[in-house]
């Protein structure tokens, strides 16, 4: 019979081994765990993916995942709420494409009048994919995140830009603008503020952050983005080269990284931290060809239920066995 002290000694020895093992793993920046989150798989598309048609048929070939969203409640200004976003991903010709799809009863695509806020969406990746995933809220100072943000307002004007004054107010009458060509009278644009870049060719921005309040425009604007609202639904496509020559999130066939989603509802005056967010999920870029198809139609949902019932019944049987055994031994 063991005494307490001998068991204590054994515990100490076990703990010492555990600690040494853990320290070795930690020093090599490893975590003894494998992520089990839902995975968004980007397979190789055989067809080109049109950026100007987020509803294109090619997307049917990408496997969707439905991601729960909840309101951002960690820092002010809080906002957003419960919702879902359906995401699909594909890659084609060295470019990654991600499509987000979510319900929004109203199309809010202008910020060109007072009191207007735009619908928007974003995807977020850790800049460096490692064992430790940054906080899903805007990353950590030592583990920054790369954010691609699309805003509806950034594609409503002519040349897929923001609405200018004449477009927002067709009946406006202004005699003249004396400083029309002097950049200092457009200070945001002149200082290189990305929200108003005059050469905007994409409705999506490439951003970096390392915790709240640190969101900063990346030096290279390389993310394409385009959305379309139809019948209460936004579909937005993001696209970027898998590999880029700077310190942003990188993707490669066969590699995985993390991805999180956010959605803003302009009708609800959501902007900034007022948004609905997801946790980090896994994004895998697969070399397989996206063939699409499959899945269960309404009628075959029953199959799922039946399989489930069979499993439960089987386990119940095993359980009964256990009970039976127990009784016998008792």
């Amino acid at each position: 019979m063991e005494t307490l002290s001998s068991s204590k000694r054994l515990t100490v020895i076990i703990m010492a081994f555990v600690f040494v093992g853990a320290a070795a793993l930690t020093l090599f920046d490893l975590r003894l765990a494998s992520s089990q989150t839902v995975t968004l798989v980007a397979k190789r598309s055989e067809n080109a993916i049109p950026l100007d048609d987020p509803s294109a048929d090619v997307w049917d070939k990408g496997a969707p995942i439905q991601v729960p969203l909840s309101g951002q409640n960690t820092v002010p200004p809080r906002g957003g709420g419960e919702g879902t976003v359906t995401a699909r991903a594909l890659h084609y010709d060295g470019k990654l494409y991600i499509r987000m799809e979510w319900s929004d009863a109203t199309k809010d695509d202008s910020t060109s009048m007072q009191n207007e806020f735009t619908d928007a969406a974003a995807v977020q990746f850790p800049v460096e994919h490692g064992e430790s995933v940054p906080a899903f809220c805007m990353g950590n100072p030592d583990a920054p995140v790369n954010i691609w943000q699309w805003k509806a307002a950034w594609q409503t004007g002519t040349d897929a830009s923001v609405l200018d004054v004449q477009e927002a107010y067709p009946n406006i009458a202004v005699d003249f603008y004396p400083f029309e060509d002097e950049p200092e009278f457009y200070p945001a644009a002149a200082s290189g503020n990305i929200v108003v870049r005059a050469d905007r060719t994409s409705a999506a921005d490439n951003l970096l952050a390392g915790s709240f309040g640190t969101l900063t425009a990346a030096e290279d604007q390389m993310v394409a983005g385009m959305g379309a609202w139809d019948d209460g639904k936004w579909r937005v496509v993001f696209s970027r080269d898998l590999q880029v020559g700077a310190e942003y999130a990188q993707f490669a066939e066969g590699d995985s990284t993390n991805v999180a989603f956010a959605v803003w509802n302009g009708a609800n005056a959501e902007r900034d931290g007022m948004k609905s967010v997801s946790q980090f999920l896994t994004l895998e870029v697969s070399p397989e060809i996206a063939t699409g198809g499959g899945g269960l139609s309404g009628g075959t949902i029953g199959l799922f239920v039946v399989v489930g019932l069979v499993v439960v019944a089987g386990l119940a049987t095993v359980g009964s066995y256990l009970l039976y055994t127990r009784r016998q031994t008792a």
């Binding site: 207007e116 923001v162 457009y186 644009a189 900034d272």
Partner: peptide
């Protein structure tokens, strides 16, 4: 500035103003 208009909302004297075509 990213044009969130929190300053427009919270300046009591209303001397922060939103410039729509600059988004700030």
């Amino acid at each position: 500035c990213r044009g969130y208009q929190k300053c427009v909302e919270q300046c009591p004297y209303k001397k922060s103003m939103y410039r729509p075509n600059q988004q700030v």
